[in-house]
Amino acid sequence: MKIKRLTELSLLTGLALIIFVVELRFPDIIPVPGVKLGLANIITVYTVYKYRAVETFLLVLARILLGALFASSFSALIYSLSGAVCCLAGMLLLRRIIPLRWMWLCSIIGAILHNTGQIVVATAAVRSFAVLAYYPILIISGCIAGAFTGICAQLVINKISEK
């Protein structure tokens, strides 16, 4: 059972990385730092509902570290990490309250928390509140992206449970 679990998690990490690398090729929709679809989070949301908290955390950590390596963007690593920690903490708590049918809602809140974590770190890094001007735009884009990834993850779970 343990090895089966490990294999599943590695497979999911690999999948998330592939999605992440493919998304890197997408052109920026709006030139605001931090605005992106975050398609790899389909896997994150799926894992939040299907696996234990520690397992989810390790999967996301592996994806972020390897993703930074593949994208060679280590300066952005701190923003991804801070966002992911906030997002995961929130979603792992919310999965007790929000049932599977409302997964997309959990994903939206995760996205909002992700952007909040990022903006806090960005404000601290730049040491200027000017960054906060981007916050409302990040939240709006986060809600849309979060709803999209959440719905995708929900479709995946429905498909798998059908079989």
């Binding site: 919310l94 049932p99 409302w102 939206i108 001007a133 916050y135 409302p136 735009i137 809600c143």
Partner: peptide
């Protein structure tokens, strides 16, 4: 729980939309 979360998300989204409009 879902109701509270849904209400919170809608409120945050509305506030952000208004703030973003003012900022832009």
């Amino acid at each position: 729980g879902v109701k509270i979360c849904l209400a919170a998300v809608i409120t945050i989204f509305a506030i952000s939309a208004i703030t973003a409009w003012i900022i832009v």
